[in-house]
Design a protein around this nucleic acid. Structure first.
Lengths: 319, 319
DNA sequence: ACACGAAATGTTATCGATAACATAAACAGC
DNA sequence: GCTGTTTATGTTATCGATAACATTTCGTGT
């Protein structure tokens, strides 16, 4: 017991005893066993996190913020990777819950029925992010992807663009991408414009290369297009590069809008008009929420609805 | 026991019994407790992985490959994030080892003495990656960063460039960056060239923005520079963008080389000469090694030395 | 019907830290 | 010195799945 107390800096163990214990541990090569501690104390200090893809600077920012916020309080992130597939997500959630995390942060608000069931029964805080679900499972730190893109369309129309295309994924696996496309279509129709210039660029996540290819096809099939909105900055940059290869001037002959405010959009020439979804803030606020619930703050009984307000950033790739 | 066996698909439990158990579990909302299983069986199915930064497509590729390779066999990755600091790495390794992972994959070959001690005493396979350590702790899946950059310098010199600069970090935290700079200096000296054009771009990881700033300072202070080699493709792209802003033609007036073969280098205009370090392969081979050791393959008694051969990729940003 | 081996199910003790409780040591005050 | 209180250390049972071993059930051959 004294060893146990010494390791968790319990005040009731004297300074000398603690130092002696730690010194002896070092000599013996003893390493504390969190597995046993977790089993007995029923506290694992794990927080489970699912993201669609590791190779995405936006999600990586969210995870970084979570990691920074939680590790300061001794919480470890258990990261899983759904590959933009809600069935894969279901399997993953089941695996993760077996580790008895103290909270779970999921990306998106669309899940299989069984995944919803598992999350609801888990008895731990559930936080949905990067989305604004109709029927949240618990807490939410997110925003409406459709609404964000609608604002960009509104801006483009106000700036005088009429023949606007959308470059996105070619299946419905990326639910945030689907939402963004839906927002594009709704906004175009609201303006009485043709919303049929939809270019399928590939399976999510859409890469720069796929964005470039899609732009090539768009230019071939509908050369009178005046502007294009992309599901993220990565295909947007690819589209920009294709314009450069074809000596099409941006924004004079073609305006381009992205999503996510990736670093590349700020640095490239011309820089990219985009939407900043505050990926880091999403993770930071989710971490703060988890810690607040853990500390039993009285005002966290009701599920939190933390709204992120994505910001339209106007840069050189559009008028 | 029957429940336990049913859950791990033990052949000695009959099909009907197993189905009945699983059905009942679903009804009751039972979730298997991996913590207890880990404690008793002394198998956690965790593999610990430390990387400097999550927000780096190269390391993300390595982790993705590890994740894909290991999850197929039921192994979960426990990811930690050192922020390019070996003291942070030490703390992280200590935390991770408490979870009793079955193997640990670390990025880099430089560690604190205590970290080395902890890793050696852990009694699990240790794999160092992305480096070629003088005194490996165990297994290695990596390459010499210095040697890779030396080859790029050799190519640049052969192509006729003489006044070549290097853009890298301004401290020694990123040990791979330090190695690359050392390779640059050694190669320049071997050619009898001036190796003093070293531009410090900031703290690692060096961003595109910092690469652009560094290029600006280089152009101001040493306008006769003919070529620049960057510690990664991200500052290399930033440098390229700065040249575009200043209407400096690449590669005619300035050649640029990067490192890492990030997607952006292949897509941007002009595309970037770079070095492909096969990030995904590093993770894949590390995963294969872990599985082979786990299966007790007879030929894995000696520590593995798996050499990755980074490939110089010549593109439009250099002659 | 019986024996016998294989298949299926059951019992008990255990992994290692810790909650809950018990006790000992140290330090007051009078 | 004695009592009361604080501070420090010790004991025991426990978390839940499973290794090792034990027992029962089942199928087959005779």
């Amino acid at each position: 017991m004294t060893v146990s107390r010494a390791f968790k800096r319990d005040s009731s163990v004297s300074r000398e005893t603690r130092d002696a214990v730690l010194r002896a541990s070092e000599d013996l090569g003893y390493v504390f066993d969190s597995t046993a501690a977790s089993l007995r104390s029923q506290r694992t200090d794990f927080v489970a996190v699912t993201i669609p893809s590791l190779n995405n600077a936006n999600f990586a920012d969210t995870v970084r913020a979570l990691s920074e916020g939680l590790s300061a309080r001794g919480l470890q992130i258990l990261l899983g990777y759904t590959n933009y597939d809600i069935h894969e997500e279901e399997r993953l959630i089941e695996q993760l819950l077996r580790r008895r995390p103290e909270a779970i942060v999921v990306t998106g608000g669309k899940h299989t029925d069984r995944a919803r069931q598992l999350l609801r029964n888990a008895g731990i805080p559930v936080i949905e992010t990067w989305d604004w679900p109709d029927e949240p499972l618990g807490h939410v730190v997110g925003f409406s992807n459709a609404q964000s893109v609608r604002e960009m369309v509104d801006h483009f129309v106000t700036a005088g663009y009429r023949r606007i295309a959308f470059i996105g994924g070619d299946d419905d696996r990326d639910t945030r991408g689907v939402e963004r496309r839906a927002g594009f279509i709704a906004a175009m129709k609201a303006h009485g414009l043709d919303a049929s210039r939809l270019i399928a660029a590939g399976a999510p996540p859409i890469s720069m290369r796929e964005g470039a290819d899609a732009m090539g096809r768009l230019l071939d099939s509908a050369p009178d297009t005046e502007a294009v909105i992309c599901v993220s900055d990565l295909p947007a940059f690819g589209a920009l590069s294709e314009c450069q290869r074809r000596s099409i001037r941006v924004p004079d002959q073609m305006a381009i809008g992205g999503f996510g405010d990736y670093e590349i959009g700020a640095v490239c020439v011309p820089s990219l008009t985009t939407i900043n979804a505050f990926a880091y803030d999403i993770g930071r606020k989710a971490a703060e929420l988890i810690l607040a619930i853990r500390d039993g703050k009285p005002n966290v009984d009701a599920p939190a609805r933390i709204v992120i307000h994505p910001e339209l950033i106007l840069r050189q790739s559009s008028r």
